[in-house]
Design a protein around this nucleic acid. Sequence first.
RNA 1: CGAAUCGACUGUUCUAUCGCGGAGUAAUCCGAGGAAAGUCCGGACAACGCAAAGCACCGCACCAUCUAACUGAUGGGCUUCUUAGGCCAAAAUCUUUGAAGACAGCUAGUGUCACAGAAAGCUAUACUUCUCUGACUUGUCAGAGUAAAGGUGAAAACGUGUGGUAAGAGCACACGAUCUUAUAGGGUAACCUUAAGAAUGGAUAAACCUUGCGGGUUGAAAUGCCAUGUAUAUUUUGAUCUCCUUUUGGAGGCAGAGUUGCUUGCUCUGUUGUUUGUUUAUUCAAACAGUCUUAAAGGGUAGGCAGAUUGAACUUGAUGGUAACGUCAAGUCUAGAUAAAUGAUAGGACUCGACAGAAUCCGGCUUAUAGGUCGAUUUUUUUA
RNA 2: GGAACAGUAGCAAAGACGGUCUAUGCGCUGGACUGAAAAUCCAGAGAUACAGGUUCGAUACCUGUCUGUUCCA
Length: 129
Amino acid sequence: MPLFSLSKAEKLKSRKAIDRLFQKGKSFSCYPIRVVYYIEKPKPQESSGLKMTVSVPKKTVPKAVNRNQYKRQVREAYRTNKAVLKEAIQSKNIELQLMYIYLSKKEESFQQINKSIAKSLDLLLSKIN
RNA sequence: CGAAUCGACUGUUCUAUCGCGGAGUAAUCCGAGGAAAGUCCGGACAACGCAAAGCACCGCACCAUCUAACUGAUGGGCUUCUUAGGCCAAAAUCUUUGAAGACAGCUAGUGUCACAGAAAGCUAUACUUCUCUGACUUGUCAGAGUAAAGGUGAAAACGUGUGGUAAGAGCACACGAUCUUAUAGGGUAACCUUAAGAAUGGAUAAACCUUGCGGGUUGAAAUGCCAUGUAUAUUUUGAUCUCCUUUUGGAGGCAGAGUUGCUUGCUCUGUUGUUUGUUUAUUCAAACAGUCUUAAAGGGUAGGCAGAUUGAACUUGAUGGUAACGUCAAGUCUAGAUAAAUGAUAGGACUCGACAGAAUCCGGCUUAUAGGUCGAUUUUUUUA
RNA sequence: GGAACAGUAGCAAAGACGGUCUAUGCGCUGGACUGAAAAUCCAGAGAUACAGGUUCGAUACCUGUCUGUUCCA
């Protein structure tokens, strides 16, 4: 699998898994992003190890165009930075499930989003270890 | 030339790298809008066995055409307002410019019309007037006539003028309005022209309602199939009857369900056994189980495929029609996701980019919209 | 995606189903009481979501926007 891709297999899709994520998962925030994560172990068969999804609340961002825009930017930033976690997950044989929630009510620059995503991934790495 | 308003059309773009959804073995190709929005109308499509009748309910409402259909569009008619002109004492009628109209029926019935006013609706009423008659205290009273003038109100019992009269009044006449009737003429029709007549009988139907026409209900969270999984379990309401017959069948009744909110009709499901007591008798009764069914409280799944994108489709040309739109020919395949696909970085171009993101699909309407192009109207200044 | 309903002072919440503008409570402003304040009493201001239409007259009737709530596997 290429290093900088983000295909369907790496997205969290099941409704049950998302329900479990919110019930059992832990969370922290680094503005303008809030991260909810859950460590599933041992890793299920045919899993890539990392699963993520993005959410932008309809209450804070009322227009669909803007919601799509923010989701794409978060996804893009995650795609470019996620290589940090790859090794740790494969060595420990776990599946990490992530939910990113966009908190800000107005538009943030891509540099800002990129920075906070990188920071959150560093934090996650330290928590796994 | 500038400005304003209205209408129609359009709705940034190029290169490289990394990445996303779909098709394909692969190379590669395709990948949001004019409104994708609001869900306001109309269809297609699907399910409810058929979609039956009546009532209720809802919608529409000048006419014709277009259309799959429409609360849509096009053309026409009428009414109202408006521009200019003509006539004139003035209004209306007439010609003309532009705009608007939920534009069937208050001359079918019922209701309502606050305050003010004499009176707010049927052939009314008389506050201040006006006129006549009578009385006398000579400017008041009584009786009668009248509704023109005043006053009230959003609205006052056809409008304006003339005659008439004691004073007045459609009482009469002229012009006009409204309605009814006649069909004489024109028009597919709405309607227009014409003739005759009159109990001139406000406003309101976006008040109830009446008339005509239309509508079965529910919407892709519809619906069909496959897979996984649980509880063929628990409590509870009711039915389990009669006749015919060779039968596992038929007819009726009963219980329940469905069909549209109700009724009728129609359709479907169940109506089967065992045991005990009793009796001349599978005669009667009871209990239990089974089947169908009502309700309660629970348990499980929430994955995949179809529906789903080739269509009342789009482009170009020809052609019929005033137009909406139709017909013919040739060519094209143009998102199809399912926690849901279009982004980031770097570098350019220009007028420096508005409103805004498909979710079954079409035809409209409504609302949002920077800039640009074209057309129409109004108007300022300058020149001739 | 589809459907139903609502919007009245700063907040809550009535009546009025077309008649000239509306009760009440909490809150706000001013005054009285007090040495000062609280409580109490008196007085006052302030509203029919927005835009258009029907009507003599609309909070109510009709149409279109905006906002909010609820329901449907």
